[in-house]
Design a protein around this nucleic acid. Structure first.
Lengths: 248, 248
DNA sequence: CGGGGGGTTGATCTCCTTCAATCAACGTGG
DNA sequence: CCACGTTGATTGAAGGAGATCAACCCCCCG
C-alpha cells in the first residue's frame, strides 16, 4: 500500500546482504537469475503497516533490512505478537492469498518481494527454494514453540530476561563481540511492543526492567540502550535450562 | 524404547487410514513403494513416553492411530504443551538428531516410522515428500501462533472455551455430523493435560469447566463426555472473531 | 510555549495460583 | 467382599502476581 521505493532499487542478488541466509540461500546461478527477474523492492517507514490480517496478499517477501512485527488482535483490542521479522526472514505463505497476521514495520524496512504466482511456479520447478523454505519454517516453528513455553509458564521477570537474552545473543553473534565480557545493544522495540510480544502490559514491562536494573542484572542508559555486565547472570534469570545455554 | 509392535505390522500403504493426509499424501506409486520398504510400526500404551527431549532420535514418524502430546519442561517442573499429535501428524525433524520435545502417548498410539537417514535421502530424491512436509509445517506454524494468542492474551474461561471449540470442531468434521445441532464428543485429555496445554493449573481448568457447565454452555456426563447444545454460544465464549468463525 | 509520544511509578483491584480437603471410580490383595 | 491405596477430579479459602487506573516525567518538535 504505502510503499516507497528508493534505496535498493537495483541491487543484484549476488551482492545482496541476505543472499546466503534468505529463502534464496540454496539457489544456483540459474535459479537466482529467475528470481532476479521477478523481484522488486518495497520500503516502509518505521510505524507503517505493511499489510493487515485478512487483506489480499498477492506477494511473498524477504526482509532485507530493518525489523517488522507479526501481530494478531482480538476485536476488543487485545493484541499478541506472534513473530518478529528480522533481515533474511520470510513473510507470506505460498498457497494462501490473504495475510494471516498484521505486519508492521518497527524500524525503516526494506523487503525483497515476489509476486506470488510466479514465485509458486518457480518453486514447483526447482526444489532448492522449497527445501530452504522448509528449513526456515521448521526453525520458526521451534521458535514459536519456545515462545509458547514463555507465554504459558514464565513469570514476568523471566519473560523480560528471556527477551533481553535473545536480543543480546543475536546482537552478539552479529557483531562477533566476545561472548564473555559486557554485551551492549539497543532495544529495537518500544515498551508496548515488548508487552505485546511477552503477553504482558507495558506497565509490567517497565516495572520488571526497572527491577532488573535495580538488581544489577542490566544497566540502562536512556530508555533503549542496554548493557549486560554478566550474561550468565541474565541467563539465570530466564528460568531456562542453564547447562545447554551456550550451545543452543 | 518401550515399543510394542502388534497391530499394524503388515498394513500396506494403499490401505493406510492416513494415506491421503500424512506426509506421504502426495507420493506416487513409485515413491510409496520406497516408503513401503522402509517403514516399520511402533505402538505405545496410554501414558508411555515415546521419547524424551534431548534424547537421540534416529527416526521420524507419522501418527497412524491415537493421540500424543508434545511438551516442554523447565527444571523446576513447570511444563507447557507445545503441540498435539493427531492421526496423520508428523513427528521428528529431518536434519536434526535429537528430540526437541517430550513426546508422550495419551491414548494407545501407533506410529509409522522411518529411519532418518534413508528418509532424508528419499526426501532429497523426490520433491513430493518435502512439498507435503512444508505444507504441514506451515499449518503447524499457524496453529502454534494461534496458540500464542491464546496463551498470551486470553482469560481462563476463553482458553477453556477455545480448547473445547477446537476439539468439537475436529470431531464434528471427522464424524461429518451436522454443523448445526448438538455436538457430542469425549475429551481426549485429562484435566492436567488440558492445564499444560492452556498454561493454567488443573484446578482452574476444573473450575472453568464447572462454570461453563453451570452457565449452560456445555453439558457434562461423567468427567469426559461433553455435549455442546449450541456451538455459536461456545464460540462466543472463545473471544475469537465470530464472523469468520464458520470458515476458519 | 504547548502538545504528544514514550516511559516510569504508585495505589488498588482481581483473576488465577497455591495449598488443602474431599470425593468418586477403580483395582488389588487379604 | 471389604479395606485400602491410587488416580483423576471438584471445591474451598487464602494469597499473590500482574492488570488496571491514574498521575507524572522527559524529551523532542512544531
Amino acid at each position: 500500500m504505502a510503499a516507497q521505493d528508493h534505496a535498493f532499487s537495483h541491487v543484484e542478488c549476488s551482492n545482496c546482504p541476505i543472499r546466503h541466509r534468505a529463502v534464496c540461500a540454496r539457489c544456483d546461478a540459474d535459479e537466482l537469475q529467475s528470481l532476479e527477474g521477478m523481484k522488486y523492492y518495497r520500503s516502509f517507514e518505521a510505524g507503517q503497516t505493511v499489510i493487515w490480517a485478512g487483506d489480499r496478499m498477492d506477494f511473498v517477501a524477504s526482509v532485507v533490512e530493518g525489523i517488522a512485527t507479526l501481530t494478531q488482535t482480538m476485536e476488543d483490542g487485545r493484541t499478541q505478537m506472534v513473530g518478529l521479522l528480522l533481515p533474511s526472514d520470510f513473510a507470506g505463505r505460498p498457497g494462501r492469498d490473504t495475510a494471516a497476521y498484521n505486519v508492521v514495520a518497527t524500524t525503516r524496512l526494506t523487503m525483497c518481494c515476489f509476486r506470488k504466482k510466479p514465485f509458486e511456479e518457480l518453486m514447483s520447478r526447482t526444489p532448492h527454494i522449497g527445501q530452504r523454505l522448509l528449513e526456515m519454517t521448521l526453525d520458526e516453528l521451534d521458535a514459536a514453540r519456545e515462545w509458547m513455553l514463555l507465554l504459558g509458564r514464565k513469570t514476568a521477570r523471566e519473560k523480560i530476561a528471556s527477551l533481553l537474552a535473545i536480543i543480546a545473543r543475536r546482537d552478539a553473534t552479529l557483531k562477533l563481540s566476545a561472548a564473555s565480557g559486557k554485551i551492549v545493544f539497543d532495544l529495537p522495540l518500544t515498551r508496548e511492543a515488548m508487552a505485546d510480544y511477552l503477553g504482558l502490559t507495558l506497565e509490567t514491562v517497565s516495572r520488571q526492567i526497572s527491577a532488573l536494573k535495580r538488581d544489577g542484572v542490566i544497566e540502562l542508559e536512556g530508555k533503549r540502550h542496554v548493557t549486560v555486565p554478566d550474561m550468565e547472570r541474565l541467563l539465570d534469570e530466564t528460568g531456562d535450562d542453564t547447562d545447554g545455554g551456550v550451545f543452543v
